[in-house]
Simulated scan of single mutants.
Amino acid sequence: MFSLNPRASLAMQSIGVEQQPVAIVEDFALDPEALIAYAESGEPFRATPGDFYPGIRKRAPTQYADDFCTRYGEVLREGFALPVNSEPRVIFCAMSITTTEPQRLRPVQRVPHFDTSVANQLAIVHYLCGPEHGGVSFYRHRSTGFETIGQDRIQHYSATLKREVTREHAPPAKYMDGDDPLFARIASYEARCNRALIYRSYALHSGNIRRILPPEMSPRAARLTVTSFVRYD
C-alpha cells in the first residue's frame, strides 16, 4: 500500500561550485494518494519540542521507510560516492506540514540550514503537494564560500554566521527564498506532487515556503511532505 514505485525515473544533477549531487525522482510512490490518506487519518500531527522544523509532524508508515533502502540503497551509494561497503539505515522518517507564520520564525529558521555535519547522511524530501507551496533551494554562504558544512567547517562557519547575524545583517522575519546579503542561491527545485529530492544532509538549504495554512486544515491542502534521513554506515 505504501510501496515506492519500481518504475520511477531518477536523474542526477550537480550544483554549485562544490558540484554536490542532487537526485530528482519523479513518480516516487506507487500510490501517493494512499500516503495522503494516511496523513489524514490515525494519529494527529504534532509539534516536537526542540525541533527546528517550522511546523508539525507524524510518523511515516514503516513500510515506506523500509522500501526506500531496498529500492534506492545501491543506486544512491554510487550516485553520491558513498563508501562501497556501507549499508543504508533510516534514522528518521516523518510526514511534515509547515505551519509557522513568518513573523513567528526564530532567527535560526530564517537562514539556510544543514541537517548534520557528517558526510554519509542523505536527506529525502518527498512532496505530496503542488508547486504553489514551494520546493527547496540550496545556498552558498558568501563570506566563507561554503556550500556544505562538514565537520572540518562547522566551527568556523558557526562563529562567522553568529557574528554576521548579530552585528551586521539580522535576518528579517520571513522564510528564505532567494539571495540576501549573507547567502547566494545556487540552485532551486519546485515542489511537484510525488516528486522526491535527495541530497547530502550537510548541504546548506532552505524550503521555499510560499503558502502557510492553519494547522487545522486538511493535510491534502497543506505543504505536505515526507522527510527522511538515511545514513550509510
Results as ranks from 00 to 15, higher is better:
77 R>M: 05
171 P>H: 03
107 P>I: 08
12 M>D: 05
7 R>Q: 14
197 L>G: 08
64 Y>E: 07
160 T>N: 02
31 D>E: 11
39 A>D: 04
131 P>G: 11
86 S>F: 09
198 I>D: 09
5 N>H: 11
189 Y>A: 04
59 R>N: 14
188 S>K: 11
3 S>Y: 12
102 P>C: 06
35 L>C: 11
166 T>L: 10
222 A>V: 01
39 A>Y: 04
213 L>F: 04
49 P>Y: 00
169 H>L: 01
155 Q>N: 13
3 S>P: 05
118 V>F: 11
18 E>K: 00
176 M>K: 11
156 H>F: 10
194 N>K: 08
117 S>R: 10
187 A>G: 08
156 H>W: 02
202 Y>A: 03
139 Y>N: 00
155 Q>A: 15
183 F>C: 01
174 K>D: 01
37 A>T: 13
111 V>K: 00
81 A>L: 06
17 V>N: 12
158 S>C: 02
195 R>H: 07
24 I>H: 03
167 R>D: 12
207 G>W: 04
127 Y>N: 10
141 H>V: 01
180 D>V: 00
67 D>M: 09
202 Y>I: 06
97 I>F: 06
100 T>Q: 12
49 P>T: 00
23 A>G: 08
80 F>T: 07
91 I>H: 04
229 F>Y: 12
33 E>S: 11
214 P>F: 07
232 Y>A: 07
90 V>S: 06
150 G>D: 10
169 H>D: 10
170 A>R: 06
62 T>M: 14
53 Y>D: 03
213 L>I: 05
124 I>M: 12
75 V>T: 15
128 L>W: 05
208 N>E: 10
225 T>F: 07
27 D>T: 09
118 V>Y: 10
103 Q>E: 14
139 Y>E: 00
123 A>W: 05
233 D>Q: 13
34 A>Y: 03
197 L>M: 10
137 S>N: 02
209 I>W: 01
204 L>S: 03
174 K>T: 05
213 L>T: 07
89 R>S: 14
